[in-house]
């Protein structure tokens, strides 16, 4: 078996859990599509009651459609190793011939697909219920920007999972803490330009912010008026983020794997 063959098989096998298994029980439709629609609807009704321009409704629907990706990064990537360690999967992964980074990539590919399916249904429902108008301006750029949003988000998740590898249960708390602040900083329900300069710098470090802002500019009629940066620039930054986070994840994984073996913290049962 060639190294490439092993790599591809391992990536597909780990992604399979999410691509096939993750969509097998349709209860996610309720918890990950219908329930988020409630808060999304609330924001839309607020904007309607205030007489805000129609673009704000589209902006909320697109924001809501990006939520599954952030949830995916936190719960299916960053804290995943905690669960893998608890169940004993991590031992089996680490003792197998596949490179540990393969595992991260498999998780990311599966996570992207799983989040994409949920995101698609939120978008579909939002567009259908609230009659949001979407127009793909510069479709190629839109596809590129959206793809890089996913790769940068999930490569950030890969890097985070390497870090969470060492923090154990605390990672669950970190996840809970990170949900709402990131919703705010990414401007899920409002134009991110309203954040103010200091918070904008902070927000721009999160791929979700730039990705969402770019998607809004490229999908909503008149979207450029609420944009933070030009979509081309955002695409470039997201590409850099993808590279930086991926390299960071690979290096962190190696360092922390060795630390785990040295300190005996990689396995749950150390004796």
């Amino acid at each position: 078996m060639s190294r490439i063959g092993l790599l591809l098989r391992a990536i597909w096998a780990r992604a399979y859990v999410r691509i096939v298994g993750g969509n097998r029980e349709l209860s996610w439709m309720l918890s990950e599509v219908l329930l988020p629609m409630i808060s999304l609807s609330a924001y839309i009704f607020i904007y309607r009651s205030l007489g805000a321009p129609r673009i704000y409704e589209g902006l909320v629907v697109l924001g809501g459609a990006m939520i599954p990706f952030w949830i995916g990064v936190l719960w299916s990537m960053a804290s995943q190793f905690y669960w893998e360690k608890e169940t004993g999967n991590l031992d089996l992964y680490m003792a197998s011939p596949m490179h540990p980074v393969t595992l991260l990539v498999g998780m990311a590919v599966g996570g992207m697909f799983m989040s994409f399916v949920r995101s698609f249904f939120v978008l579909l429902l939002g567009v259908f219920v609230f009659r949001v108008e979407l127009t793909a301006q510069q479709p190629l750029l839109l596809v590129l920007l959206f793809s890089l949003t996913l790769t940068s988000l999930f490569s950030m998740g890969m890097a985070a999972s390497s870090v969470y590898f060492m923090v154990g249960r605390v990672g669950i708390k970190i996840n809970q803490i990170l949900i709402e602040p990131v919703y705010l900083l990414a401007g899920l329900y409002f134009p991110v330009t309203h954040l103010g300069r200091f918070l904008l710098v902070l927000a721009a470090l999160i791929p979700l912010t730039l990705g969402l802002d770019g998607v809004r500019q490229l999908l909503l009629p008149g979207g450029a008026s609420i944009g933070l940066l030009r979509p081309e620039i955002e695409t470039g930054i997201l590409a850099v983020m993808t590279v930086v986070f991926t390299i960071g994840a690979v290096r962190l994984m190696r360092v922390l794997e060795q630390k785990g073996k040295r300190d005996g913290t990689m396995s749950l049962r150390w004796q």
Binding site: R9, A10, V17, S96, P97, M98
Partner: peptide, 14 residues
């Protein structure tokens, strides 16, 4: 079956 298959793939089994 899927679980056993998944782990076999980490060893590159065709």
């Amino acid at each position: 079956r899927e679980n056993i298959w998944m782990f076999s793939q980490f060893y590159g089994l065709p």
